[in-house]
């Protein structure tokens, strides 16, 4: 039981480190958002499961935290991506951009 907990904790720590490294190394904003969101979601998932293995009576609170993080983290990153796109910080290395063809009449807010 404790061994499984240790394994999950170390995996979670590695993915958090990877998220930080991805934030630092990626060249433009959208790729930073991608690396950060994925790595931190799986990292927190894994660390919470590791803690649940070490303390089995906390499982319900941990389930609530996992559900909340898995729902809220992609929504937050999507909100940042949309805001970045709309504030004209479009990266220059895109090979295809369908969002630009959308037409201005849909630009509601």
């Amino acid at each position: 039981m404790l061994i499984a907990s240790y394994v999950f904790l170390v995996i979670g720590g590695l993915f958090f480190l990877l998220g930080g490294l991805g934030i630092l190394r990626m060249p433009d904003t959208f790729n930073r958002i991608q690396a950060g969101t994925k790595a931190t979601t799986l990292g927190s998932f894994s660390i919470l499961i590791g803690v649940a293995f070490a303390n089995p009576s906390w499982i319900f609170k941990i389930i609530i935290i996992i559900v909340f993080i898995v729902i809220s983290n992609p929504i937050g990153s999507s909100a940042i991506a949309k805001a970045t796109y709309r504030s004209n910080h479009i990266p220059t290395n895109l090979v295809q951009d369908d969002l630009a063809k959308r037409g201005e009449e849909h630009d509601t807010n």
Binding site: F16, G20, G36, S44, G76
Partner: peptide, 18 residues
């Protein structure tokens, strides 16, 4: 840019939760 700072702040918050 400002949005890079917001992204890194988001990641920072998630690591603090960990």
């Amino acid at each position: 840019s400002l949005s890079d700072k917001v992204v890194s702040l988001d990641t920072f918050n998630m690591i603090v939760i960990g």
